[in-house]
C-alpha cells in the first residue's frame, strides 16, 4: 500500500516538473523563431496574418516585409517572424516571395551582391534568383523561390501560407 502511495507522489513530482519546464520554456522562447518546414507552417498558419505594409506603398522594387504570428509545435508556443519580399509586377499584381533558399535553406537577400545587382542573392553558396524568384541557371538552387499567398484588406497586405512558385 505504502509502495503505491510513493509511486503516486513520484508521479505528481514528475508531472509538476514537466509543467514547470513548460512554463520556463514559454518565458524563454517567445523570441526564438524556428526554421520550420514551409509545409508545416502552411497548415499551422492556414489563415492570413496582417502585415504593417500598405499596399499603396508597394513599388516595383522588392520590399522586405516582416510578419509575426504564434506557432505551436509539440513543445512550445512561439512567436515566429517570417520575412517576405514583396513588389508589384508590370501588371500591377502583387508578388510575395519567401526568402528561404531552395538549395539548402539559407535566407536570401535582395540586391546585396555588387556583381549581380537586382537579384536575390544567397550568401551561403552564392545562389541567385531573378526578381520574380526564378533561380539563375548555373547557381546551386534548382528551383524558384516559394511564394506566400496574400490578400488585401483595407489597403493592408495580409500574408498566408507558403506555396510553390507560380507564374504571376
Amino acid at each position: 500500500m505504502s509502495k503505491h502511495r510513493v509511486s503516486r507522489r513520484q508521479f505528481l513530482n514528475y508531472t509538476l516538473t514537466g509543467v514547470g519546464g513548460f512554463m520556463a520554456a514559454g518565458m524563454l522562447m517567445p523570441m526564438l523563431r524556428f526554421a520550420v518546414d514551409p509545409v508545416l507552417e502552411a497548415s499551422a498558419g492556414g489563415n492570413f496574418v496582417a502585415t504593417k505594409q500598405k499596399v499603396a506603398d508597394l513599388t516595383d522594387k522588392p520590399t522586405r516585409v516582416n510578419f509575426s504570428f504564434t506557432q505551436k509545435d509539440a513543445w512550445y508556443e512561439s512567436d515566429v517572424t517570417n520575412i517576405a519580399w514583396v513588389y508589384k509586377n508590370n501588371d500591377g499584381k502583387i508578388v510575395a516571395l519567401n526568402p528561404t533558399c531552395k538549395h539548402l535553406g539559407c535566407t536570401v537577400d535582395w540586391n546585396t551582391n555588387k556583381d549581380h545587382p537586382n537579384q536575390f542573392f544567397c550568401p551561403c553558396h552564392f545562389g541567385r534568383y531573378t526578381k520574380d524568384g526564378t533561380n539563375v541557371p548555373g547557381t546551386p538552387p534548382l528551383k524558384p523561390l516559394d511564394m506566400y499567398e496574400y490578400k488585401v484588406k483595407d489597403g493592408i497586405l495580409y500574408l498566408g501560407a507558403v506555396v510553390p512558385h507560380k507564374e504571376a
Binding site: 526564438l32 523563431r33 526554421a35 533558399c101 538549395h103 539548402l104 535553406g105 539559407c106 535566407t107 544567397c122 550568401p123 551561403c124 553558396h125
Partner: peptide, 11 residues
C-alpha cells in the same frame, strides 16, 4: 545564435 543559424542554415 539561433537567428544566425536560421540565416545560414545551409552552410
Amino acid at each position: 545564435a539561433s537567428e544566425i543559424e536560421r540565416q545560414f542554415k545551409g552552410r
